[in-house]
């Protein structure tokens, strides 16, 4: 594992970025999606990244999680400089230490609810994987639906399974991309309650991407993007 670069990044940050930029080349020339992003997220902190559609918030999430490489700038995740790692090393860094919640749930259709939670545990090599998965399924209130496949579950239930999957490996950080985007308001609210409850109990760092300003206020810190640049931070 690469040691944290204390010259450029504050000690102890779970994730931090300096001068982050993402540009793509299109038929009409170069398009800037993100520019001049600096941020630091301390352990246990919750950060909301907000902005309208196309403001670059999901791109930023992808860069912070090491799913993509930036055009410029540097990301430190869990003490490692991502630019110095190849894709497989970044994957190894994520294993068991980074959780994800997606707008489209991303559950595997052939696996049951329990097995979907089991998947990251098996991949991280947890010994008591099955018991742990069952425990997490119970924590999200779906113990009796263990053998049901995603297509037998409602949207809200699927996202609860996805939450359990994200937290099951005791990750140090969870990235959530529009977790209520595919849900109705009531169900969305319940999911968010559950997300923050699980996060608070586990003391996990949470980076939440949302276009919903009200939801963002539940995070300790907020960062608003406009056209790929930081337009506002709260608290300032």
């Amino acid at each position: 594992m690469t040691p944290p670069d204390s010259r450029r990044f504050p000690d102890g940050a779970v994730v931090s970025a300096r001068g982050l930029a993402q540009r793509v080349t299109t038929a009409d020339g170069e398009l800037t999606i993100l520019a001049d992003i600096d941020l630091t997220v301390a352990p246990g902190e919750t950060l909301a990244i907000t902005g309208a559609s196309g403001s670059g918030k999901s791109t930023l999430l992808g860069l912070l999680a090491g799913l993509d490489r930036p055009s410029a700038g540097e990301v430190m995740l869990l003490g490692a400089a991502l630019s110095e790692l190849d894709e497989d090393a970044r994957a190894r860094l994520r294993a068991g230490r980074v959780g994800f919640v997606f707008q489209s749930f991303q559950l595997l259709p052939a696996l049951s609810a329990l097995e979907n939670i089991l998947l990251p545990l098996e991949l991280a090599g947890h010994r008591d994987a099955r018991a742990r998965a069952a425990d997490w399924l119970a924590r999200v209130g779906l113990a009796e639906r263990a053998s049901h496949t995603p297509r037998q579950l409602s949207g809200g239930e699927q996202q609860r399974v996805a939450l359990a999957r994200a937290f099951a490996t005791d990750p140090q950080i969870v990235f959530a991309d529009e977790p209520t985007g595919n849900l109705d308001a009531d169900t969305g609210a319940r999911i968010i309650d559950l997300l923050f409850e699980l996060n608070a109990r586990a003391g996990t760092t949470l980076v939440l991407v949302t276009h919903d300003a009200a939801l963002a206020t539940r995070c300790a810190r907020r960062m608003h993007l406009v056209a790929g640049r930081v337009a506002a931070r709260a608290p300032a």
Partner: peptide, 16 residues
């Protein structure tokens, strides 16, 4: 494709 992307997200290397 989605399964493969998800597994990579969860930390599976290309070799895995």
């Amino acid at each position: 494709y989605d399964q493969a992307a998800l597994l990579r997200c969860m930390g599976a290397t290309r070799r895995d």
